[in-house]
Design a protein around this nucleic acid. Sequence first.
DNA 1: CATACGTCCTGCCAGC
DNA 2: TGCTGGCAGGACGTAT
Length: 280
Amino acid sequence: MPELPEAETIAKGLARVLPGRRVARVRVLKHDVVEGPAARFARGLSDQEIAAVERRGKNVVVRLAGGDRIVVNLGMTGRLLPAPTPSPPPGAHHAAVHWTFQDDSSLTFDDVRRFGRVQLLGPDAWRSWSRRLGPEPLSSAFTGARLRRILDGSRSPIRSLLLDQRKVAGVGNIYAVEALWGARVHPARPANGLTDPECRALHRTLRRVLRRAIAARGTTLRDYRTAEGEAGGFAPALHAYGREGQRCRRCRASIERMRLSGRSAFFCPRCQPAPEAAAS
DNA sequence: CATACGTCCTGCCAGC
DNA sequence: TGCTGGCAGGACGTAT
């Protein structure tokens, strides 16, 4: 499931091929994937040139020379597939949006489960959209003190807070779980109950795991692929996520799984003591 | 405002 | 072998 490192890897890959291309035609094949009327979306992109490909949180942002932006939320299974040909690549079995460019190349947004969303935003709409997201965890603005203030505002389980894009942008279940394992903090701990040392540790481990995952080009569990169609390399480096019943790599205890707000959370019961034990 | 929970969607896989 | 029910989960809408 694409989170910040996966979106970053895809954006970097697309940034090598898309800038300079000019839109020839847009086909919306799955209307529920595009925000607003498909006709307006297609019209707004007509003859537009791509200036850059960037990232905000988990979103891939295609910036156009005219100042508008295509914001792509990949959801669970969304993939952006560039091709040197006008037709979608062979692997695109669930094409939702298809762009062809004036040089006869193309880009396909393919999404099996259709949790993904694509929208076209003008400069003002972009600013207000972006403002709704929390800070970028790898930016210099995201300090330990900033995280402390975010945690202090919530009694929610720390894992739930880390998934809230309004609080911190780009963190999903995999990296939230990994950062908490690194910081030795149980996923169900109330956010505002973390001690200052725990908060500092979480700040450090969150940034570290995101940076390392970017260096490995993301985590492929099943669907995620880079813009070049390759699997990410971070899966073998996971310490807790998906490792229920396996040994903790730090203390050899058996990794456990719990459900928290309907989502799986993985943790080491020895390294990450449960809230009751930690509170005493 | 903060928090909790249901909903969307389909491929996969364990279990019978 | 073939079927089925549960599961995966990011973001949003609604309820409390």
